[in-house]
């Protein structure tokens, strides 16, 4: 009797074909129809004072998938990702317009609390930024101030395991987080983000400051994380986007001084083999940017 194959046992092309079939059934709707929605962004624009940096982005972020955002410098990728947990507005004069649905909640609704939103949508930055505390406290801190009342030891261990760091630090949890290597520090920051149990993890060039081995560990970690979380990553490394993501969005500025816009969004396999738009193809093949 033929049994249904799991995702791990199936070829990449089989999985992609199923996703594409699901999309076709949706009569040409956005990528990922038929999958669980992680975030739904509608007509999102971002401003720095009177300058519009990103315009009218509408995109569905699928749950338990990695979505990569690529594009040339200054096209609004990082601005956009910071809008997804209301980090953009902490910059004086910065604001966002539009809708970002996280489940049933519009994170830009007047009733939405930015602090709660940032707990539900965690963020990992380009440069590792551990606290000047022990490894243990780095992970426990966020959960503690959010009122976590469970078994803290268990939470720290679970978070470090999820971030693929536990085996390397389990015997020195009391040592300073600053004593770790750059790659370990970044995974510590991922563990710290996981400890507050977010639904979505945003990563802004998380491996750009790391050596190849550390980068590989972060990429492997992301592959594991998507089983439990929705991941959105900004990266300038197109091969990284091709390796780790399920969906890719290409941001582009049409003319100098214009706001950045989401130029093309599709399954990563399609974006890196046969994108629809010339500008996307020129960018992914390295002809500009």
């Amino acid at each position: 009797m033929e049994t249904e194959k799991t995702g791990r046992e199936r070829k990449v092309s089989e999985v992609s074909r199923d996703q594409r079939d699901a999309r076709k059934k949706g009569d040409g709707a956005a990528p990922g129809d038929g999958l669980t929605l992680g975030m739904k962004i509608q007509d999102l624009s971002a401003f720095y004072g009177s300058f519009k940096a990103v315009t009218d982005v509408s995109i569905d972020i699928q749950a338990n998938k990695v979505t990569a955002l690529i594009g040339p410098s200054g096209c609004g990728k990082s601005t956009f990702i910071r809008c997804l947990n209301r980090m953009h507005e902490v910059i004086p004069g910065a604001r966002a317009e539009g809708h970002v649905m996280l489940g049933e909640q519009d994170i830009y609704a007047k009733t939405s609390d930015p602090v709660v939103i940032r707990r539900r949508v965690g963020m990992v930055f380009q440069k590792p930024n551990p606290f000047s505390k022990s490894i243990y406290e780095n992970v426990a801190w966020g959960a503690r101030i959010n009122g976590y009342r469970g078994d803290m030891d268990e939470l720290v261990e679970r978070s470090l395991k999820h971030a693929a760091l536990w085996e390397e630090v389990k015997d020195r949890l009391k040592e300073s987080g600053h004593g770790l290597s750059g790659g370990q520090q970044q995974r510590l920051c991922i563990a710290r983000t996981l400890a507050v149990e977010p639904e979505v993890i945003l990563m802004d060039e998380p491996a750009s400051a790391l050596d190849p081995v550390s980068t590989q560990k972060i990429e492997d970690t992301m592959d594991q994380l998507k089983q439990d979380y929705t991941v959105v990553i900004v990266t300038h490394n197109m091969q990284q986007a091709a390796r780790i993501s399920d969906y890719t969005g290409f941001f582009y500025i049409e003319n100098m001084g214009d706001p950045g816009q989401l130029w093309e969004f599709d399954e990563t396999e399609k974006m890196f083999s046969n994108p629809e738009r010339k500008e996307t193809e020129d960018y992914v093949t390295g002809r500009f940017g």
Partner: peptide, 9 residues
């Protein structure tokens, strides 16, 4: 060169 898209094709 890690070709993609039209270069890969």
């Amino acid at each position: 060169q890690a070709p993609v898209a039209r270069d890969l094709r």
